[in-house]
Simulated scan of single mutants.
Amino acid sequence: MKKIILYLRLIRITNWLKNIFVFVPLVFSKHLFNLDYFYKAVIAFLIFSFASSLVYVFNDIVDVERDRVHPVKKNRPLAANLLSLQEAKIILIILSLLTITLCITIWNEFVYVVFIYILINIFYSLYLKNIVIVDVFCIAAGFMLRVIGGALIISVYISNWLILTTLFLSLFLAIMKRRLEFISYQKIEMQREVLNKYTLNFIDQMVSLTSAGVVISYALYTVASRTILLFGTEKLIYTTIFVLFGIFRYMYIAFKENKGENVIEVLLIDKPMIFNLLLYIVTTLLIIYF
């Protein structure tokens, strides 16, 4: 049982929640209760879950020595010598086979998105994470590709405004992650070289730009003529308040408490964020479907 828990920690199973982005096109295309579409979206979720875990394990293998001097990452199974490199490589192979097998079963344009996601993250682990600005775009690309993949697997149109919202949100989360790393780990030996190329003022300006982009893009999506025609209502604009609260609350946690490097931990632990997210989901579903 202890080994299983270590394997689950290695593949970052809690981070599978990030793959819920593949359901965005399903919900906003009004196909949530269509079993065929829902089944395909679940398959996409599983594929991205295995693919993301594959990337995490690969990154841990590459960064094992660097992680051992990190105040938090030193507790990861590989860095803490709780699992061997050989075991990690076996898990990596198993995850690769699972990803390939599932991709073969639904072979379409979605599969190319998955391969692009894996390639970007491999190059990120090896090189791109050390290039200023490119590093945050690589992190953001992961969220973007999940949404695009979710649309392709069920063959639905996704609004350009929704894509822009996802882009700004992805960049916002990536930049906030860099901000927290900059404050906490910049001076730690062997940590990210790219942190030395940033300044706190520059990061905060990017945070302001991307957070504004999220809210404006989402608000424009809710009042777009195509959106109103699709849902038959203008009431989706009222959900913007939840988006605003979520952005402000996350910024508060990061700026005031220096927490939130992992957005999933915030969503699972912070009660106001949990309550706000539940309200957003319920309100959005009621407006779109009922």
Rank of each mutant, 00 (worst) to 15 (best):
I188W: 13
I93Q: 07
M273G: 05
T14P: 01
K18E: 02
L230F: 14
S96C: 13
L200H: 04
Y56R: 07
F21I: 09
N15H: 14
T284D: 11
I148N: 01
A80G: 10
Y127M: 10
R66C: 03
Y289F: 14
I43M: 11
I47L: 03
N34C: 11
V22K: 03
R178S: 06
F110C: 06
T227D: 08
L78W: 04
S96T: 14
Y56C: 09
F137E: 02
D67L: 04
F242L: 08
I4G: 01
G142R: 01
G142E: 02
L279T: 01
L128W: 12
Y185K: 06
V22F: 05
I269D: 14
S155D: 15
A140Y: 01
R66G: 00
L83A: 08
S52Q: 09
I281D: 06
S155R: 15
V215C: 03
N15C: 08
E261F: 03
I120H: 03
F290V: 14
L230E: 13
L244D: 01
L209H: 04
I148L: 15
N19D: 07
Y238P: 00
R9N: 15
H70N: 11
L85D: 13
S225Q: 13
M1D: 07
I91Y: 05
N262T: 09
Y127V: 11
N81T: 12
G150M: 09
V214Q: 01
L180F: 08
E193K: 15
L17N: 04
V24C: 06
V22P: 01
L278I: 15
L209D: 06
K235N: 14
I20K: 02
V214G: 01
K187W: 13
K40Q: 11
